[in-house]
Design a protein around this nucleic acid. Structure first.
Length: 526
RNA sequence: GGCCCCAUCGUCUAGUUAGGCCUAGGACACUGGAUUUUCAUUCCAGUAACGGGGGUUCAAAUCCCCCUGGGGUCACCA
């Protein structure tokens, strides 16, 4: 039998990073077994704007390179793939359950049900449905319906037995039906509820493996029972652990982003966004983008390979040592029995380490492409850059080397893309290294003369000039190098100083030195 | 609280199904050192874990029981 897995997001307007991992595991299992991966959109609440709600989800799949065999935009033989359009299927299934007596129309008033439930809770007694409507004759039901009496449809939980599954991750799990409330499977108007719709749809879509997060484990017995009543072949289950928030054991949740922002364990992730996002015109404080969402990582300049690698290692391992794996490698080796049972916290450090590994594997061209996109977005270069701009960016990238962890980091090297007048100084460092040390400005002024007199403004030549200068003035290299760096880049640290000078060019360097001298002197006066 | 799940270094994990090869392996982080004009890399080295208690056994991280701790879920949401 062909393996068929599915991921069934509700269109919320964003793709959750934890949900993405669930989707990934489904995709992997389907691909590993030469089966199909299906995307079904669980939109039972009719969405106002489907483009807005679904767009980011599909975009996340595309960005990571996870394709789907059936679903939105690609169709398939088992459609439609929007749950809201499958109402005929749900209606038919509901009729079937009602006719067979597996479900019943419950006319018990809502508040009465609620009162009973609360009373049971208070007395620490197991609440069970009253089933007052179960004994109603067909005629009575018809009369009540005709009279327009409010009701819901409940699934009649069979008593005196247990339900059990052999979960691919959890092993044998069993529930006592005697403890289960008859679940509402449809509203009075026939509109289906989650557990029912899911069972109907999974059955009709011929899903063979339901791979989902652990939080759904408690829904499973209901769905199994509905499958049984419907006569469906029971899918196999794999309840994978959920992704926990960094530094904790709780489920990573969009609701808690405010808390995460204050959490030290989360710092690295937010910091990246704070550095990169504003330059591209996104407000990092805007909650429409946060480290809980896949889009955040794309906007900051992560690589799909980095994210994918981190996600797959959250709860799964290939063996006792392999860490860096491409999607292709994982696809060849993925197995459900190597999924870990305990929940796993997302570790920003580890994520970063996968990311830097995959960045280091990128060709110069790929790096260039990625960085150009970010530079254009930040308006540091033209939207359609000329050849000489590309050459320049390539040179900067070569200089930056492994300092570039995410594409967004290129925006931190803006000194190569702005004019002398708009260069920003790191104030603290500028004060400390240029303004404060007594001889700094004078030394810089003298060095400027030498630099101005140099004919071949190459990195090697500059290196010799500065070395000669150091020797002649009997100072230490460390007394002038940082000053020069601050003057031309505005920063205290960075890539090789002399290559930086060469890249910037003589004229630009002199301008910047002049400006730095002027600025430092005016600061001294104050 | 009921039901269910889980428990190895700070973190992600290997080892648990078939007890001995485990004086518990790897990775990230951390610390120290080397390289380096700063930063980043790279390279070496180091610190660091079987939650507790009982069994079973010649032998337990591994099997059984209890305890403790953590988590999920309890809607006419999905």
């Amino acid at each position: 039998m062909t393996v068929r897995t599915r991921f069934a997001p509700s269109p919320t307007g964003y793709m959750h990073i934890g949900g993405m991992r669930t989707a990934l595991f489904n995709w992997l299992w389907a691909r590993r077994n030469g089966g199909q991966f299906i995307l079904r959109i669980d939109d039972t609440d009719q969405q106002r704007n489907m483009d807005e709600a679904l767009g980011p989800i599909l975009a996340a799949f595309r960005w990571l390179g996870l394709d789907w065999d059936e679903g939105p935009e690609v169709g398939g033989d088992h459609g439609p793939y929007f749950q809201s359009q499958r109402r005929d299927l749900h209606d038919a299934a509901l009729e079937q359950l009602l006719a067979s007596g597996a479900a019943y129309r419950d006319f018990e008033p809502v508040d009465q049900t609620k009162t009973q439930r609360e009373a049971a809770e208070k007395e620490k007694r197991v609440y069970l449905s009253s089933r007052m409507s179960v004994g109603l004759s067909d005629a009575e039901v018809t009369t009540k319906l005709a009279a327009g009496e409010a009701h819901v449809v409940r699934f009649l939980i069979p008593r005196g037995r247990t339900v059990s599954i052999d979960d691919h991750v959890r092993g044998h799990v069993q529930w006592d039906c005697g403890l289960m409330v008859d679940p509402v499977i449809a509203r009075g108007d026939g509109s289906p509820l989650y557990n029912f719709a899911t069972a109907v749809d999974d059955g009709q879509l011929q899903i063979t493996h339901v791979i989902r997060a652990e939080e759904h484990l408690s829904n499973t017995p209901i769905q199994v029972l509905i499958h049984e009543a419907l006569g469906n072949a029971l899918p196999e289950f794999a309840h994978i652990p959920f992704v926990a928030a960094p530094g904790g054991k709780k489920k990573l949740s969009k609701r808690d982003v405010d808390k995460y922002r204050r959490s030290p364990a989360f710092q690295k992730l937010f910091q990246l966004g704070d550095e990169v996002l504003p330059a591209t015109g996104i407000d990092p404080a805007d909650q429409s983008l946060s480290p809980v969402m896949v889009a955040y990582y794309r906007e900051v300049g992560f690589l799909p390979a980095g994210i994918l690698n981190a996600l797959v290692r959250l709860g799964w391992s290939l063996d006792d040592e392999t860490e860096n794996m491409s999607l292709q490698t994982v696809q060849q080796h993925f197995s459900l029995d190597r999924v870990v049972k305990a929940s796993a916290g997302l570790d920003p450090d580890k994520l970063m380490s996968y990311q830097t590994y995959w960045m280091s594997q990128l060709s110069a061209d790929e790096k260039l492409k990625g960085c150009v996109e970010f530079l254009s977005r930040a308006s540091l270069i033209a939207e359609k850059p000329e050849a000489d701009t590309l050459t320049r960016v390539a040179a900067v990238l070569k200089l930056a080397a492994d300092r570039l962890r995410v594409f967004g980091d290129i925006l931190g090297m803006d000194e190569f893309f702005v004019s002398a007048d708009s260069l920003k100084y790191n104030e603290k460092d500028f004060q400390k290294r240029v303004v404060k040390p007594e001889p700094a400005v004078d030394l810089l002024r003298e060095l400027r003369q030498l630099l101005a007199a140099t004919e071949k403004f190459t990195s090697d030549a500059m290196h010799k000039v500065v070395e000669g200068f150091v020797e002649q003035k009997e100072i230490k290299f460390g007394q002038i190098a940082p000053v020069l760096r601050l003057a031309v880049t505005g920063k205290a640290k960075g890539a090789d100083l002399f290559t930086t000078l060469e890249l910037l060019g003589q004229e630009e360097c002199l301008k910047r030195i002049d400006r730095a001298i002027g600025t430092a002197e005016s600061m001294k006066v104050v």
